[in-house]
Design a protein around this nucleic acid. Structure first.
Lengths: 201, 201
DNA sequence: CGGATACCTATCCAGAAGGATATATGACTA
DNA sequence: TAGTCATATATCCTTCTGGATAGGTATCCG
């Protein structure tokens, strides 16, 4: 499945691309402006999904969104935003976005949302809607797991972490495994990137 | 060798500690304020070296430096700063710092400086002095190495990088090895941290 | 009490990462 | 032209990672 992720925030862009592409089925193309995204769509045909940042250069209110929606027709455009009010969210939906997501939501949920939308089985949860529906909360780590993650994010090896926390390497490996599961990653490098970009620590 | 690194910038503190402690001979203790540093020195005796950030809480001009120099006597105190003028540098030296280093200098050089100072074989190069003496420049990566590092920093495995850049995994591994050598690290996690904190990309 | 959680340890295994060496080609240049 | 540099590939070997499974203890709570 081909996804176009349009965001000018380099770090998030790269890390999200890396994260999503762990799934071999997903291909993520990147754009950092509305115009760049439009060029990509024009040249390479509509994507299976466009993930569009609300705070991207060229957005111009919701005009940029409408232009991309038009180019994508009838394929879906997902708007993602850091700070969204009820008003802008509904306006975006009226402008053709199939859903408005918050950057505070967890990566797993974002991925689920993306796949759901592509598969056509999606109920749009957007920030500002009733309660916390579909919203934020990052994966909860136990205190120990948090310590271990902190060590991982300092570049320590399992052996070093074991010494640092006075544990067996076996124990450390077990914690690492659990952390990976919660973050939905499969390498310590990705764990670092995810925990930094969603600042879990 | 016991080193006290006093800096309130968490990221740099942790990554530098991790980096230096790769060398098994070095033990790095941390403090985030001048007072915390003084307490550590008082309780645990003078360190082989104190690495002191100029922009640390409690510094109060150069008073904090003088207090730490006094506590450390006769062991060395190294001042490290992001933005230093000729004036503050010489003032710091007069206040008892054995040298003033710039945060723009490379990690390797910093480590060399630290070890040199402890071994007593150090000629203080401080920012603002003639030309670029002892100063900044980060390790120079070849274009290819830069590409590979970028991939590493996206959390990709060697195999994924090979696919991405259309290379053999063997070639990627070779590039990775070279990058590690230039950054003076020995794992991709550390490479990420170093290249991010010294934003090499 | 019984169950749920967090925590610690152990062993096995496949595969990835890291380190060392060797070889080869094109490009730039002293 | 000879030398250097970046690039690319290969092989060998060791260590570390990541994943699976299977135990064990302590604590908290209904």
């Amino acid at each position: 499945m081909r996804i176009l992720f349009a965001d000018d925030h380099d770090l998030l862009r790269d890390v999200l691309k890396a994260y999503l592409e762990v799934d071999e089925e997903l291909t993520v193309e990147l754009a950092s402006t509305v115009d760049e995204a439009l060029v990509k769509i024009a040249h390479e045909g509509p994507f299976d999904l466009v993930l569009l940042d609300y705070q991207i250069p060229g957005m111009d209110g919701l005009l940029g969104l409408r232009r991309i929606v038009a180019a994508q027709e009838p394929r879906p455009v997902l708007l993602i935003t850091g700070v969204a009010t009820e008003g802008t969210a509904t306006a975006a939906l009226r402008s053709g976005a199939v859903a408005v997501l918050s950057k505070t939501m967890s990566v797993e949920k974002l991925k689920i949302a993306i796949v759901s939308v592509i598969n056509g089985s999606f109920v749009p949860p957007y920030p500002g809607s009733a309660g916390q529906a579909g919203g934020a909360h990052a994966p909860t780590l136990t205190p120990r797991q948090e310590q271990v993650l902190r060590c991982i994010c300092s570049g320590l090896s399992n052996k070093q972490i074991a010494r640092e926390l006075k544990l067996t390497e076996a124990t450390v490996k077990m914690h690492v495994k659990m952390i990976f599961a919660k973050l939905s990653v499969n390498s310590r490098t990705q764990a670092i990137l995810i925990s930094k970009s969603f600042n879990l620590l």
